[in-house]
Design a protein around this nucleic acid. Structure first.
Lengths: 245, 245
DNA sequence: TGACATATATCTAATTCGCATCTTAGTTAT
DNA sequence: ATAACTAAGATGCGAATTAGATATATGTCA
């Protein structure tokens, strides 16, 4: 049977469907390391483990809208960088029922990240430790950002460790050919701050003059004329992202 | 509440859910141009327009498995390069009901592409014309590969033009840092064939010595020792992809 | 044997990249 | 006031990579 014939004869409620959710990786830079917002599960399944914020996709909302709704509801944040990551559909992802989840990556400036953390009591910040270099990929580990002394990794619920790893992979891969890094900075920022973000995401130190040159030669940055305040040394020029990035 | 009790009390059907499908972009190189397999719709909605092969995701199959099933059923192909592209969830994608579709990109060697075309009567090959250069993105147009004389573009059903454009974008973007191009070639191939594939996908001519060097320096290729047959000039070395790509 | 078409090697210009150094603009201490 | 200090920002140069063009080698066929 061809696709169209099948669809035409299809009774919308004749067959069971997988449930559809969105899961959000809310990332930022915390203490010079990549970090994500997690919430501790209090109920079955996977009670006491850490999960990404998520929710079901409504019948009358797009996937992007569902992701934004979860973002508002769980973290009180509106309008950050938000992009679809990947769709996870393993059969046993969730023991309750068949759930297919569309994972999203949201990038927050450090201030918005802290604000979300303070605003929502159930959210916790987790440092994401990335043991692999470059863009090859692999598993990542999450550690509590509250007490860096406890070096025991957080136990993640469902397949959320995989989602977190993919988020880091995407972030690293897009970092230096797209403007994705700017989403982790405030509207006005110095070149040093931009370099700090890149170094935190990549996990390696970068050469300062080379980094400056590359960034300025891209033509994405516009100097504001204003300068950084509150330093005890020469204040740095503040830049903003040029309008048609 | 114990996990068992929780699971027992959980009603999986409490809320309405969008339907979930997979749509496949079956791509190859045809007459030195990127091409895709389409099927003509015979019924409403979008009758007489061209659509990507697709199907519903069963309750007991993963997304990848659903894509492979559609690939076998519609094109009689097994085991090509298959990767998830993006998930499309606009509200009005399909006028019949809310359908969320996970798009997949399948890459076929030219021989397998032609074989699928001959094996399935309802499938047609379409040349994908890409008006934008580089990796910026934008809309693409499909033309019939049967009669290249008729230069009127094929009208695509649903949001399948968007899916097709994204497939090209992904293919172009991954072409020269991943081994994705090899999926469009037979097991043994010459460097000239590899370059032809890259030129067809990118839509620009490439410098031969530079291309050779880059490919060989990657370390992904292993010479087979055998040589191309049937040429009226010097036969080229046949290469294969090194095992752990 | 020679013409032909392409593979393969060589050479050179251009670009990028990393590193070291120097200058500049502020604050802070004397 | 002045000197010391710190990090920003600019400059210069060699190494390394890359791209383009050209030349040579190789195998087939007339």
């Amino acid at each position: 049977m061809s696709e169209h014939a099948f669809l035409a004869a299809y009774d919308p409620n004749a067959f069971a469907r997988p449930a559809l959710t969105v899961d959000l990786v809310l990332m930022s830079i915390h203490a010079d390391r990549p970090a994500a917002l997690l919430l501790k599960r209090t109920e079955h399944p996977h009670a006491d483990r850490w999960a990404l914020p998520g929710g079901f996709v409504g019948m009358d909302e797009t996937l992007d809208a569902a992701a934004e709704r979860v973002l508002r509801a769980k973290a009180g944040i509106a309008g950050p960088h938000l992009e679809q990551l990947y769709t996870f559909g393993a059969l046993d992802r969730d023991p309750r029922m068949r759930i297919v989840s569309v994972a999203y990556l949201a990038l927050l400036p450090e201030a918005a990240f802290r604000q979300a953390l303070d605003g929502a009591a159930e959210l916790s910040a987790a440092i994401v430790e990335v043991p692999w270099a470059g863009e090859t990929g692999g598993p990542v580990t999450a550690f509590s950002a509250q007490d860096p002394g406890r070096r025991s990794p957080l136990s993640l619920a469902f397949d959320h460790a995989d989602i977190l790893a993919l988020a880091i992979l995407r972030l690293r891969g897009k970092l230096d050919y797209s403007g994705i890094g700017f989403a982790l900075l405030p509207e006005h920022f110095t070149l040093r701050q931009l370099q700090d973000v890149h170094e935190a995401i990549l996990g390696i130190p970068l050469n300062k003059p080379a980094f400056r040159r590359r960034m300025l030669d891209r033509g994405w940055l516009a100097p504001t004329g204003a300068r950084e305040a509150g330093t005890s040394f020469r204040p740095a020029e503040l830049y903003r992202v040029r309008k048609p990035l």
